[in-house]
């Protein structure tokens, strides 16, 4: 399985879902979007060995504060 952002290739065995993948990467699902072929994937989507996926972080930092 090829992952983007950052780019890396990971080995997967058998069909697995989005939460399975994120668990193996130690990523909290609430903190990312998983994108395949420019389409967002919900949690129940099954992933295939040849899939090319982007796991895009969505939480940004910054100045915060009530007036910012």
């Amino acid at each position: 399985m090829r992952l983007r952002n950052p780019d890396r290739i990971i080995e997967v065995s058998g069909p697995r879902t989005v939460p399975d993948l994120l668990r193996s990467l130690e990523i909290v699902p609430e903190a990312v979007l998983v994108i395949r072929d420019a389409t967002l994937l919900t949690r129940d989507e099954e992933l295939e060995e040849h899939d090319e996926l982007e796991v895009r972080p969505v939480l940004s930092g910054g100045a915060g504060g009530p007036g910012s």
Partner: peptide, 17 residues
């Protein structure tokens, strides 16, 4: 998509995680 390069270690981000 990229984060601001100056935000590293920002406490707001730690709270969000």
């Amino acid at each position: 998509v990229e984060e601001c390069p100056m935000v590293e270690g920002n406490v707001q981000h730690k709270y969000k995680e």
